[in-house]
Amino acid sequence: MILIDLLQALLLLAGVGFFFVGTLGILRFPDVYTRIHALTKADNLGLGLIVFGLLLGADSIPVALKLLLVWGLALLASATAGYLVARAARRRGLRPWKARNWGNG
């Protein structure tokens, strides 16, 4: 039981860490496209790790399935929202930030 508790704690902490990194990415990354990358991918993994951590402590099958459903719906929502924001930015002619354009982008 101790081992399971330990694994659960590790998964939950790692999940929180990835959420933190996703937020840091919004602050550090240079434009809307790269920020969407940071947010969708880091939060996807962060939520996934938290869900798997909680699965270890789930006491019934519906609860476990509910956790997986939450993750699945969040993935669908973040991928769809990320695409809609990126498409809107592209339609408005927003050019992606380029590494060589330091200073004038």
């Binding site: 990194v21 990415g25 240079p30 880091a42 996934g48 992606p96």
Partner: peptide, 26 residues
Amino acid sequence: LWQSLLAGWDVARRTLSPGLPLQPEI
């Protein structure tokens, strides 16, 4: 699942590197 893991790790690595290693393109 495996690719999600790689994706989260990749973006975390880039976010946390001081030099911000990005070369974005469409």
